[in-house]
């Protein structure tokens, strides 16, 4: 299968790329890793008139850890995260990375591209929702920082404007009393999640939950943050019962569809089980930092 014809642009600098977007952002699709876009083009689910390849832009492949923040440039690949020591600063991120796609696809696919694509079955958006990430959107005349919650609008839709490009993804690092996890039920390596659950916990000095993050993959028409479940955890002392309560809330809030991966009832049940397990694993890590 082959894509329809398109025009190809390969700017050499960020300024050049942004000016292309400024002039013809409506017709230009950004090609980063291409691991979702190119298959869609081959199946002709997508036929953009113009592709702008940003892979030649210099200096956009760094993972930086500064002042409690983990920062991914636009061209950071999934496998860069898998191999990065810096990325271990956020446990949800580092545990999710090996579950994204398959090892060869991870060599090209990018974190930022995955978020901009916003497939509700994608893993990264849940990770970012659970950890409270924010994105830097850059255009030729401005730059803004957007919370992930605001960035993701609906499936395959974000609030990135046609003249903008995601240039950075910022994730808060976990403190020594923090932990996180990503539980994914996939039928095989490379499969989209039947259910994915991202969890993140920060404990206070006394061992209570200071901050909690829970977000779900593939069980709603977009990646779903579950504030109700997070609220049930915050301020409380971690226990199996507490995690079960939060998990139960998550399973009630989601709204999965029945398909070949399983019935809605089954997926709801897995959300319950995996949220509980993810919180337990997150806590396992976080409590190691308690003195």
């Amino acid at each position: 299968m082959y894509p329809a014809k398109f025009d190809y642009l390969a700017p050499e600098t960020l300024e050049e790329a942004l000016s292309i977007l400024h002039e013809r952002g409506d017709e230009v699709k950004i090609l980063a890793g291409g691991q979702s876009l190119i298959p869609m083009m081959k199946l002709r689910f997508a036929s953009p008139p113009t592709l702008m390849d940003i892979n030649r832009l210099p200096g956009l492949s760094r993972i930086n850890r500064t002042n409690g923040t983990l920062e991914f440039d636009a061209l950071v690949r999934h496998n860069d995260v898998v191999k990065s020591d810096a990325a271990k600063a956020n446990h949800t991120v580092s545990r999710a990375a090996p579950w994204v796609a398959d090892p060869i696809v991870r060599n090209l696919g990018t974190v930022a591209g995955s978020l901009a694509h916003h497939d509700p079955e994608g893993d990264w958006a849940s990770v970012m929702l659970a950890t409270g990430a924010e994105l830097v959107l850059t255009s030729s005349d401005s730059q803004r920082t957007v919370k992930i919650d605001d960035f993701l609008v609906d499936m395959f839709t974000t609030n990135c404007l046609p003249n903008e490009m995601v240039t950075k993804v910022r994730v808060p690092a976990h403190s020594s009393r923090g932990g996180g996890d990503y539980q994914k039920l996939e039928r095989k390596v490379g499969d989209y999640a039947t259910v994915g659950v991202a969890t993140s916990l920060e404990l206070d000095e006394g061992g209570r939950v200071a901050k909690a993050g829970i977000a779900l993959t593939s069980v709603f028409h977009h990646n779903l943050k579950v504030p109700e479940a997070e609220a049930a955890l915050e301020g409380e002392r971690p226990s199996d019962e507490l995690f079960a309560e939060a998990a139960n809330i998550a399973s009630q809030v989601c709204d999965p569809a029945s398909d070949v991966r399983g019935s809605a009832e089954y997926k709801r049940h897995v959300v319950d089980v995996f949220t509980r397990r993810g919180l337990a694993k997150s806590y396992e890590t976080a409590k190691g930092g308690l003195t």
Partner: peptide
């Protein structure tokens, strides 16, 4: 040196 699926990369890339 990095493994890539060559059906998912354009030659121009």
């Amino acid at each position: 040196g990095t493994p890539v699926k060559s059906c998912t990369m354009f030659a121009v890339q």
